[in-house]
Design a binder for these strands. Structure first.
Lengths: 128, 128
DNA sequence: CCTTTAATGATAACAATTTATCATTTATAT
DNA sequence: ATATAAATGATAAATTGTTATCATTAAAGG
């Protein structure tokens, strides 16, 4: 008996996420996947995202003060850049944080993880 | 003519924020200030916070995926530690981020600001 | 001590985001 | 090709967080 079916909606949604320059918000996913599949319902996007999360194919990315975004799972430790011009969020490869796991900070705080967001201008917005 | 009045509610709310170990969520502010002033309404907390923001006495702090928090203004550039044990958020003095303003990253991104959150165990939760 | 009116507390109203409902469509095993 | 039930799209409903409303309370200047 089959359980989960393969549909063009889910395919379009996953493709959108996999080909993105960084994590996307639900509205962005809906917009972009709708280009490929006009008429796509927003509820379908939410359902597909929850399924992809359960399957471990996608992870949630939260930036401070912003709505949830979604990006492909398995791209390892990385951080994000938020452009103050276009509002876009991009994956970065650099990790300029000098606090490895296990570091004990003054005050007695033991660091297990960190979350960094860089803000500034992306190349396209740099001249504007 | 007097404009803004000095009330015990606002005083309790500001005291709560000034004496906190880090930024507090609205609910926490309400709880703590209610200890000093039983019966305090949640709407009053919101109103006081908006006033304090306008006056520049308080600033908003957002951690990834969490509701807004509020802390005293004027404590300069700093970051936050979030304890995975008690859920508390604490101010840190360290800034272990090696990306000064103006840095140009590979990919052409120009950094203007950064936002760091460290996760781990606070001293009190370290043994638990 | 009065008077004025800003502030409060309770709660309804809003706004934004996510989930539930349900009739219809469609993937897929036979 | 057909039957079955998962998936979809439209929309209502539920959540969560914040603001507006309004009768009552209480700062604070005279």
């Amino acid at each position: 008996m089959s359980r989960v079916r393969r549909t063009k909606q889910r395919e379009a949604i996953l493709n959108t996420i996999l080909s993105a320059e960084g994590p996307l918000a639900v509205g962005q996913i809906h917009e972009r996947a709708s280009d490929e599949l006009p008429g796509l319902g927003i509820a379908t996007v939410y359902r597909a995202l929850n399924l992809l999360l359960e399957e471990g194919k996608v992870v949630v990315v939260s930036l401070p003060g912003e709505e949830r975004r979604y990006e492909a799972a398995g791209i390892g430790h990385h951080h994000h850049f938020r452009c103050s011009g276009c509002g876009g969020v991009f994956d970065l490869e650099v990790c300029p944080v000098g606090v490895p796991r296990g570091t004990r900070l003054p005050g007695g705080y033991t660091v297990e993880e960190h979350h960094l967001t860089l803000y500034g201008r992306c190349p396209a917005c740099a001249r504007g």
